[in-house]
Every structure is written in C-alpha cells, then in structure tokens.
Design a protein around this nucleic acid. Structure first.
Lengths: 159, 159
DNA sequence: GTTATTGCAAATTATTTGCACTTGG
DNA sequence: CCAAGTGCAAATAATTTGCAATAAC
C-alpha cells in the first residue's frame, strides 16, 4: 500500500516532519483489520516504544485525519474508533449495539436511499461516515428474542 | 399528549417518585421542537428553578430513556442531543455536519435498504437510531462548492 | 416514618493544551 | 542550528457518583 509513502510525501510537502512516533502510529493502523479506539492504538504503540505519549497518538491521529488517511467513527457513548481510509472502496459501518463490533458493508444499497434524501429534503448524505446501529448476526443468534432497548441498572423491579 | 401521564404511571408502577424536577424536565422536553443538548435542557430547566442541579437533569434523562420516552442522538464530537420519542412516527435524523441542525426524515425510504443489510449481512438495523451525516439544503446553498473534509487548524500552508 | 431523590462537591473519563526539552531536516 | 514535534503534567469538558440532607408517598 502506498499509504506510507503518501503520508511522507504529504508531510514533507507541508513542512511537517517524519518522526518515529508518526511512523509507529501509521504502521499500527495498517496492522488493524478493524477500527480501533485510541486506547487500543495506544496500547499497541507502547509495545513498540513505551516512551510514546498518548497525546502524541491523539495528535498523530488528528494529522492523519487532516490528510484524509484516517477517519474516525463515532459509536456513541463517547466511544470513538479510528481506521485507515479504504481508498478504493468506501463503505458503511454496521455497528452492533450489543457487542460493539463494527462491520464494513457495501455502500451501494444505500445510494438510492441517499438519492431520495437529496430529492425530498435537499440533504446531501455523506455515506462514508454513515454508521448503522443495530444488531449483528451473532448477537441475534444468541438472543433471538429480547428487548432491544436499554439494559439499565435501576433499582426497582417492574411489578 | 399522554406522555406525562404515561410517565407518572410508569413511575408509580415501578416505585419511583414523581418529583417537581422530573416534571420540569419532562415539560421542557415537550416544549422542544428539535432535539436538545443537556446544556440546553439544563438552561431551560433553570428558568423554572435555578435550584435544580444538572446531575438531576442527567438522571432524569436516563430515567426517561429507560422508559423509552426519550432517545439520545449522538452527533459526534461528544455532542449528544435528546428528544422525546415520537411514538406515532419514528424517523431518521439528518444531521448537518456544517450547521449542526437535525432534521427528521421519513423512515420508509430506508426500509428497503435495511432489508438488504439483513439479507446480505444478517444485520438487523435499528432505523430509529439512525443518524445520517451530511449537509442540509441551506448549507449546500451557501457553499455550493467547498471541501466537505476537515477544516483544521494546522500551521503549515500547503506548498 | 421510610426510602427514593436531590444538591453538592468530588471523582471519572476522554481529550486538549502549555511549555521546556528534544530532534529531524 | 532552529522550528516542528514530543513528553509531561496540568487544564478542560462532559458525565457520573458518594453522601448527607430533603421530600414523596
């Protein structure tokens, strides 16, 4: 993947520097097959060098986002994950609200839907940022029937 | 709307108490025509009584969510908004990434899309929680051509 | 009266920032 | 060499929690 070299090129072009920290973060992101939280990324970064600070990870992720090499996906509950942009094929994210898994999905079926939104509401949807909440196959299998709603921790039992 | 009475009923049924604070929060939510942040809700609550604490607002919103009277919508960037559930007609949220406006949209056009997801990935989408990022009509008019991407604050100019 | 609920203040969590020191170009 | 970048520690911001006082039922 030319992602690394593209990054270096962009860095130099804009007068940024190529530091080992930035290389580590980028290579970690390459290893990841699924989106990862800052926490997860930071852990793996530390396996390379425990001197790297988490603030540097944040800063590098910001930079990578500016370069459109990385996107962040907001899973709610202040759970943000990052992943390398799939330059060839952008896709949606199916976010399982039960197990937290994020699955990539073909963007095409959403396109006619997006067209409808544009037509009816003048709203230009950005499908590459679209996260679809719901329940994945595994979790559905496990709990074929169950309340989708909140599983909260309130004191009083119902009736 | 029977929402108030439903709430009271549910409270009593489960041994919760009907407090003025809870009534205020609920009535504020009724006044809101669009989803509101905790901050906004809190401000309006204080107009009624500045003795009400923000933690009580949080707690009440949690409770209302447990009762499925309120849903929270995550707009990313740790911007959460709350709104009363539209019992009759659930709808999607079109979230303008430019001005932050949230517009309700008909859920039907999304249904065939959801069916595809179920078929292809076994993923059961929860359309009532679906937020669609993009750009609303107004913002599109204003900046007919513009970079959708990040408008960041990095030092070095390109080239 | 008893127990849920509140206000308050302190704790938590995720992220950002100021700054002196370090280092890449 | 010298500005960009880093580590660190402190600052923010949003939300949660422990607890004694209060109020609903």
């Amino acid at each position: 993947m030319s992602c690394e070299s593209y990054f270096m090129e962009q860095l130099q072009k804009r007068g940024f520097r190529l530091t080992p920290q930035r290389e580590i973060v980028l290579s970690i992101l390459h290893q990841m097959d699924s989106p990862a939280s800052v926490e997860e990324i930071f852990e793996r970064v530390q396996a390379f060098s425990n001197a790297v600070d988490i603030s540097t990870v944040y800063r590098t992720l910001d930079l990578l986002q500016d370069f459109n090499l990385v996107i962040s996906v907001d899973l709610g509950e202040s759970h943000r994950v990052f992943k390398l942009v799939d330059a060839e094929e952008p896709h949606l994210h199916l976010v399982c609200e039960h197990c937290g898994t994020v699955t990539g999905a073909d963007i095409h079926p959403a396109e006619s839907f997006a067209a409808t939104l544009l037509e009816k509401y003048g709203f230009q949807a950005d499908l590459t940022r679209l996260n679809i909440p719901g329940m994945c196959e595994n979790c559905r299998d496990q709990k074929t029937h169950s309340v989708t709603g909140s599983v909260h921790k309130h004191p009083a039992p119902l009736d």
